[in-house]
Design a binder for these strands. Sequence first.
DNA 1: GCTAGGATGCTCT
DNA 2: GAGCATCCTAGCC
Length: 186
Amino acid sequence: MEAVPRAFYDRDSRVVAPELLGKVLVVGGCRGRIVEVEAYAGGEDPASHAYRGPTPRNAVMFGPPGHLYVYFTYGMHWCLNAVTERVDYPAAVLIRALEPLAGIALMRRRRGPVPDRALCAGPARLCEALGITGAQNRGSLERGAVRILAGGRTRFRVAVTPRIGITTARDWPLRFVIADSSWLSR
DNA sequence: GCTAGGATGCTCT
DNA sequence: GAGCATCCTAGCC
């Protein structure tokens, strides 16, 4: 199946985020359906890493859409974003949970003894399950080692909630989930 | 089932 | 030096 084209990402992150639901993320032999995302919306979003302007860490958010923004947090965890919007406008969508589809034995080995329900239910958990680290930062989602495929499920109900794990702009309704999925982070 | 607290180090002030 | 887009374990219902 074809990867989602760059033009898909070249739109408002609040539009791209719900449209990523149901699509399939591929890394090597591992695949998972995207069931939970959060939008981080450019310079006007005080919860965004890019809110205070460009830094070495967030530089990729100011670059072209359709690339990976992978950052390290809490001293031990990696999290994965898809960069959206035009060059110089910093926005991204955080991938928060996947429904494991393929490569599940490898995911279990990487994650250790956790129930399958927790394999990819959280932004740092899915990065560990898929072997994603800062080495993948700036990679192309269209041509790189980590890709998102066009197509996927489209018949499901989308629920919108506040974002998780932030303190500023906590109430903005920018978390999107497949409502009846049993693979969500909470 | 639930909550509280600790791990651990990079990033920016 | 403070804060962090998190996760896991221990302890207690």
